[in-house]
């Protein structure tokens, strides 16, 4: 009877142990744990990341668990942060990745370098940093081994956010999730931005077509000389001082558009292509 009563607790502890199993120094041979595990919440992340903590908090940071592993003179720091949701975890990865390097297929996306690795899976953002290696040492193999071991033990989505597929792929240089004020505009609360060889595109999803229409109206009011454009359900284009030629449209509950182009007409033409890809 007592064992039955304790069963939920045992299961809970087992689940917690499994969930934390990703903090393991044995994913690559020879590495040993150094010191105790660390844990931070939004309240005390400043202790660990100093001013950089703000960069986590805007992505809905909930908590971080970490561990240090040693091999000879090298110390590998592993930090696994739980973000607000999977999209925000991807956003954290996209904000921190090197835009000059390709994205590897680890979780929703990752990057492995000689002395560091980053990836996001589910609502988790994972950072590996070899903090004490000499500048010349190449730990790519270990980084891959650790990333693979951690990735296998983290639950959650392994596919990048669907909206990223809607961006035209030609001349695309990078994509990222912006957690607030997309394009520096408060009305565009959270969304995706794609950078191209020339210009950038964005996608923001509102709760309903009505709220999207309201936001579009407010945005249009910001731009002197805006004129209507034939894109999506409704659209406008304008030439602006800081975002260049722009075209912003609404399709259902989605707001999207192109900016930073020489002329608004060019932005409208590209926006039409983007609108065709949005379901």
């Amino acid at each position: 009877m007592k064992a039955v009563r304790l069963l939920p607790l045992i299961l809970l502890l087992a689940a917690m142990a499994q969930a934390q199993d990703y903090l393991n120094c044995k994913f690559a041979p020879g590495w040993e744990q150094s010191g105790s595990r660390r844990q931070y919440t939004a309240d005390n992340l400043f202790e660990y990341k100093d001013g950089g903590a703000e960069g986590y908090l805007i992505y809905g940071f909930a908590h971080m668990r970490g561990i240090d592993c040693k091999l000879g003179g090298d110390t590998l720091s592993i930090d696994v942060s739980e973000m607000g949701d999977a999209d925000l975890a991807y956003g954290m990865f996209s904000a921190n990745r090197d835009p000059g390097l390709p994205i590897a297929k680890i979780g929703m996306g990752g990057q492995i370098q000689r002395q560091s690795a980053l990836f996001a899976k589910g609502k988790y953002f994972v950072e590996l940093v070899d903090v004490a290696a000499s500048a010349d040492s190449d730990h790519t193999a270990e980084m891959k081994a650790f990333a693979a071991g951690i990735e296998q033990r983290i639950e959650g989505r392994s596919t990048a956010p669907e909206a990223l597929q809607w961006f035209p792929q030609q001349d695309l240089t990078s994509t990222r999730l912006v957690p607030e004020s997309v394009l520096g505009l408060r009305e565009l609360k959270r969304g995706y931005v794609a950078s191209y060889k020339q210009g950038q595109a964005f996608i923001v999803q509102e709760a309903s077509p009505e709220s999207a229409a309201e936001v579009l109206k407010k945005l249009r009011g910001r731009f002197d000389g805006a004129s209507s454009a034939q894109v999506g359900d409704e659209a406008f284009q304008a030439k602006t001082q800081y975002l260049g030629g722009i075209c912003i449209f609404r399709k259902g509950r989605t707001l999207a558009g192109y900016t930073n182009l020489p002329e608004p007409q060019g932005a409208a033409s590209l926006a039409a292509q983007l609108a065709a890809r949005i379901p």
């Binding site: 001013g51 950089g52 703000e54 960069g55 805007i58 912006v178 957690p179 607030e180 004020s181 997309v182 394009l183 520096g184 931005v193 001082q241 800081y242 975002l243």
Partner: peptide, 12 residues
């Protein structure tokens, strides 16, 4: 500049 969402804000 740490959490600025878009370079246009800094430019302005």
């Amino acid at each position: 500049c740490m959490i600025t969402s878009d370079p246009s804000v800094i430019t302005r």
